[in-house]
Design a protein around this nucleic acid. Structure first.
Length: 637
RNA sequence: GCCGACGUAGCUCAACUGGUAGAGCAGCGGUUUUGUAAACCGCCGGUCCUGGGUUCGAAUCCCAGCGUCGGCUCCA
């Protein structure tokens, strides 16, 4: 399954965003070795195909499917120029320059043509050409992108002082392609497949190069696996947070504010509940909450470096000849609170939390529901501490993150990103910061992965990833140990016990990341059926007939008084309909009141989806106690 | 921003090749008082995204803008 990109506003607390737009050429693989043709088992036996499904072979099958697709496209659209066609997670794609835009009908025709090629069971045959020969060959076939690839390979070899290596080709039936391989033995070994979509894609991912047409497809060893994958795509659509947001009346988007959500009462209630839970957790951990201005003079951004490096993402306004910007990050302003008075070593650590509303001018084409927005709120905090306190602070953050993950049943994974090539500050400081992060991770007992060079340019960081119910990976929290940017650019100091001025260390961190995005992830993970503790409506009181309405309202009032979010459905709908509506709204608890219950001062508790036989009828007082306890426990169901 | 698709009632969707917009749900009014996922009847509801153009005539065709969706990261 294709995961969403993990780098977005949730992960970039600070200047990191500046560095994301990296267009460095990725190093291409060395020249082709003897690339094996996999000997896949004969087609037709699902078990054998499954057994043979070693990762490399599945990739070979996917890559082979890309070739077959290219064959079909070249056949149906003469003059097609070929880009690249790799295997990717769950499938493959191929990029083409075509005489006209593709339509969904074309996909069906291409698919059909592919099936014919698979049925023909053409063997894949490897060939080899000297570099110059290869270039002439593809030049002669009017394939400029292939020629460019060969030129790059030759240039790279020349730069390394080597002669260009021979290049390999793969032919199946009528189709020949420049290709490193490997492939399956023949087209007949390609499993069940499906073409999925057409999309534009810049040649080599660079916006200054031509826009090609990319066709995505998926292929699997067995029909069951294909079906399971297609089901997962369907399920993802059903769980789409944009659809759920409308269905559950949580938020909406309107064209007057692209990239910014309008929060409806229930959505705002969910938001508030998440925020309040975090506040409570932070209060126990010694945080203080602050709030800084949203509209700030350019002087601040010049000092922080954003003006140079991040200006294109900042919304600017002018007033009385002065230029201001909506803040895209909280960190620079946080330092003004730190510096508002002299700080003593006794003040540290100083943990300043801020639920700041941020604006970033993202490209219009990248906006996507709550997951990619122009306006959002981070559960941000900046921790100012002495260097010797750093490790303990990181440990506390890991613990905080664990606690928050438990509220939702998420199992976090950790990734430590260390000093990148381009980094600010003294390497010795970096080593200390990295050692603190590493020690804290080790002490936490959690497993983690080190990714060398993946830190922010001013700080090593720990990114925290979670998998949702559909096995998609999301980055939520990030923790960055900044010894350089805030402390030095903003000249932060404290006075130590000997009266000397010292430089503090800062930590940038967010646990939910952006509230918008986190809510989007929650909705998709739970398919809208949120845990009791954070559900916007925790219970609906369902009265059966008019004569039960008074009791229903009394019960509703009692539960609301106990701090629960409860609605009373005293409409004249039949109870079946009331239950249906509550189920559709994913309300966790329905409390049924009829003659029996009113008589006994009880209510029948129907949990979301629970059949009547399993329902319990209990007294109001007991019910209120149990529900309040359940809400306070913040369990993930 | 770029490529492509899409934009009809609050929501989900119809309207053959251009002939003047329709259904279900929701909402509103009534009837109904019901025991675990839809009671019945009626009513209201549309600048067919916006602005130009072609045409006797445009939701439908053309151009521009806005918005949404899928991508633009997987490297022969």
């Amino acid at each position: 399954m294709t995961s969403r990109p993990v780098a977005d506003e949730g992960s970039s607390l600070s200047m990191e965003m500046v560095m994301i737009d990296r267009n460095e050429e990725r190093l291409e693989q060395a020249p082709p070795d003897e690339a094996p043709v996999f000997e896949a088992p004969a087609r037709g036996s699902a078990d054998e195909l499954l057994d043979a499904g070693a990762h490399g072979e599945l990739d070979a099958m996917r890559h082979s499917a890309a070739h077959v697709m290219a064959e079909a496209v070249v056949d149906l659209l003469p003059g097609a120029k070929l880009g690249i066609g790799p295997a990717i997670a769950d499938g493959f794609y191929y990029d083409f320059e075509l005489p006209r835009p593709l339509t969904p009908d074309d996909l069906a025709a291409i698919e059909e043509r592919m099936r014919a090629s698979v049925a023909a069971d053409h063997p894949f045959v490897r060939g080899e050409l000297a570099a110059a020969e290869g270039r002439a060959f593809f030049e002669g076939r009017d394939q400029p992108y292939k020629v460019e690839i060969l030129d790059d390979l030759a240039a790279r070899a020349a730069a390394a002082g080597e002669a260009p290596a021979p290049v390999s080709t793969y032919t199946h039936g009528p189709f020949i392609d420049l290709c490193r391989g490997p492939h399956v033995a023949s087209t007949g070994r390609i499993g069940p497949f499906r073409l999925l979509s057409v999309a534009g894609a810049y040649w080599r991912g660079r916006s200054d190069r031509p826009m090609l047409q990319r066709i995505y497809g998926t292929v699997w060893p067995t029909q069951q696996e294909l079906d399971a994958y297609l089901w997962r795509l369907e399920e993802a659509k059903r769980r789409d947070h944009r659809r759920l947001g409308r269905q559950l009346d949580l938020f909406s988007f309107h064209d007057v504010a692209p990239g910014a959500a309008f929060w409806h009462p229930k959505g705002q209630t969910l938001w508030r509940t998440l925020e309040d839970a975090m506040r409570e957790e932070q209060r126990r951990r010694g945080y203080l909450e602050v709030s800084t201005p949203m509209l700030v003079h350019r002087r601040l951004w010049e000092r922080s470096g954003h003006w140079d490096l991040y200006q294109e993402h900042m919304f600017q306004l002018e007033s009385e000849g002065q230029v201001y910007s909506l803040k895209p990050m909280n960190c620079p302003e946080s330092t003004y609170i730190y510096r508002a008075r002299k700080r003593s070593y006794r003040d540290l650590p100083l943990r300043l939390a801020e639920y700041g509303r941020l604006h970033r001018n993202e490209l219009s084409g990248t906006l996507s529901g709550l997951l990619r927005v122009r306006q959002f709120v981070q559960d941000d905090a900046h921790i100012y501490c002495r260097p010797d306190q750093l490790q303990a602070e990181i440990a506390d953050l890991l613990d905080l993150n664990q606690a928050v993950c438990r509220w939702f049943g998420f199992v976090p994974r950790y990734r430590l990103g260390t000093r990148p090539d381009k980094a600010l500050g003294d390497p010795a400081l970096w080593e200390r910061a990295e050692a603190s992060l590493l020690a804290a991770l080790e002490a936490s007992g959690q497993s983690f992965r080190v990714e060398p060079g993946e830190g922010a340019f001013y700080a090593p960081k720990i990114d925290i990833l979670i998998d949702d119910a559909l096995d998609r990976e999301w980055q939520t929290a990030t923790i960055q140990a900044d010894l350089v940017m805030l402390p030095e650019r903003f000249d932060l100091t404290y006075t130590d016990e000997h009266g000397a001025e010292q430089r503090p260390v800062t930590v940038h961190r967010a646990i939910y990341g952006s509230l918008e995005r986190f809510i989007g992830v929650l909705l998709e993970h739970f398919a809208g059926a949120l845990p009791f503790w954070c559900a916007p409506v925790q219970a609906v009181v369902v009265s059966i007939a008019t004569r039960h309405e008074t009791a229903a309202r009394e019960l509703g009032t009692l539960l609301v008084d106990r701090g629960l979010r409860v609605e009373v459905d005293d409409s004249d709908l039949r109870m079946q309909n009331k239950i249906r509506l509550a189920e559709e709204q994913k309300v966790p608890v329905m409390l049924v009141l009829g003659d029996r219950e009113v008589e006994g001062g009880t209510a029948t508790v129907r949990r979301r989806g629970q059949p009547p036989g399993e329902q319990e009828t209990i007294g109001w007082e007991e019910l209120a106690k149990r529900l309040a306890a359940e809400a306070a426990a913040r369990r993930p169901s």
